[in-house]
Design a protein around this nucleic acid. Sequence first.
DNA 1: TTCCCTCGTCGAAGCGCTTCGACATCACGT
DNA 2: ACGTGATGTCGAAGCGCTTCGACGAGGGAA
Lengths: 334, 334
Amino acid sequence: MVKITDVARHAGVSPSTVSYALSGKRPISEETRQRIEDSIRELGYRPHAGARALASSRSNVLALVVPLRAGIHVPVVMQFAVSVVTTARRHDHDVLLLTQEEGEDGLRRVADTALVDALIVMDVQLHDRRLPLLRALDRPSVLIGFPAEPDGLTCIDLDFQAAGEVCVEHLAGLGHRVIALVGSPPEVYVRETGFAQRVVRGFTAAADRHGLSSSVHPCEAEPAAARQVAEQLLRERPALTGVVVHNEPVVEPLIDAFEQLGLRVPGDLSVTAICPDELAARVRVPVTSVAIPSAEVGTGAVELLMKKLGGASAPEATLLPPRLTVRESTGRRP
Amino acid sequence: MVKITDVARHAGVSPSTVSYALSGKRPISEETRQRIEDSIRELGYRPHAGARALASSRSNVLALVVPLRAGIHVPVVMQFAVSVVTTARRHDHDVLLLTQEEGEDGLRRVADTALVDALIVMDVQLHDRRLPLLRALDRPSVLIGFPAEPDGLTCIDLDFQAAGEVCVEHLAGLGHRVIALVGSPPEVYVRETGFAQRVVRGFTAAADRHGLSSSVHPCEAEPAAARQVAEQLLRERPALTGVVVHNEPVVEPLIDAFEQLGLRVPGDLSVTAICPDELAARVRVPVTSVAIPSAEVGTGAVELLMKKLGGASAPEATLLPPRLTVRESTGRRP
DNA sequence: TTCCCTCGTCGAAGCGCTTCGACATCACGT
DNA sequence: ACGTGATGTCGAAGCGCTTCGACGAGGGAA
């Protein structure tokens, strides 16, 4: 193995000079720098990660904790992970993969052994048990999603409230006056991730603002449940012409149900969804939707961490603005 | 930060004794071991990963290279990754996530800097450009999938040939005499991962062995293509009663197409697939299938690596036996 | 009894890198 | 002319851990 002293000897300088040339932490003359770089290339030198970590107390590795829970859309997680890795590499960092399963012990372990410099935690619950730990840890972290009390933590996510609003505004702009939100399963509103409530809040606020008649309907993640909700809506709100869906597995079944009940989409009924673009695009009737911007969230999370690692402070909350993509499922009020 | 000397002092022994107590590389009396463990717990000691790596030249980290290519079934990759992480943890190792994008440089980097002890490479192509590098690297690696020339490498994957055979045998056992394989897009058979050819080989061999009339039909990963293949099959092979599908996105569209053409599944036509269980189970007509055993492959890959890291030798090829799950899409010949 | 081996422990020497303080040099303002 | 502050480099001291050789004590074989 070729080490820094080999490079130093080959370039006729001291090891510290090589180190400074590499890190740029002290000025090195253009001439020596060049010589050192040549030696490095010629000898094929690669600094030993462990030695570096020991001496500098920086491992240049980030931990990424991915969720395993059922009901999580896997491609979104994957997309997110890839964007984290890519962005981290741009900042000369690597990514260590942890699973939720490891829990708090896992976080503490990688932090305390100095295996990683910082942590990214996905799928944060409203009252996540890891929060106290993350606050106490001496390493910076970024959460994907918002807990009930984000004080002292750094969080990033899609602005779900604004997402709800944007959907309503789109429908209002098309002249719809009576709308409904088909939401997540009831239990999601009780515990869990809190974004569901935020969508409701945005939906309701925007509807009120525009003077629309609105209603909210939790829905199990089952085609049969979708069918039931559709029937219920036709029965109870016959004037309905606009629907917002925030429940991925149900987007397609719901549209199917409406059509089977004799409503054309978008002819009689406009449907918008909050879901991954990928899903929205490959439904039979491509759905106008607000995307879950997993790549941006990943990039954002890493950038925030880098800022914190650099000693700067990062905002507690970063809300990514929703982007609505108009597809074929929405049209003017009939 | 509490370090090994603190523990040593607290327990009244020398640092080396603590180290040996932890690693078990030399005998330590039960009594001192106990005392040391108490001190560790009391002080909350965690060995510094970098220091450990430097001194022992073992980082206890594995690299996992995940593919990004389109046409890869994301949930399978994720499942695989999770099983790798879980298994690695059982062996006291962590997992560093790399993307295909980083390419050969990425592999070289993490290996040469001693960031990782060993590598797992997914989605290996028949003539993968990384093969020479992996052979040359001084660290062990395991490939998921089989290249054209696996000499000197360690590979693991589902036994796709046997998978093809099992499907045919299942159909033959149900009395079917005329069968077809609907395969992957044509280009897959030319370059890429080689498993497609292996399915064909198994399919054909088993069909011949059982005296069945068989044919093979590559198919683009599009619903429209599925429809065309279905029509073509009805036209050219009217006696057809059994189909094997090896093309994930087409499983459902193909069944739909057959039914629209007036064939009942499994009444008139039996269909089996080689695809993730998850997909097979949630199709409208749940499909009898051979699963892609991503979790087993992941576990197996890690176990192989551990064996190699332990100095033992590992078999060049590990072929996981196919498991056929009978669902509702196959029945006796009409 | 002597020799040798195993068991249990210690001290010291690194592992390969970063960083701190020191020093020499040079250019500048005064 | 002289102090002053950047600039460029070096040597040495660690970072926290593992590992090697050494050594005393005890037990069996000869």
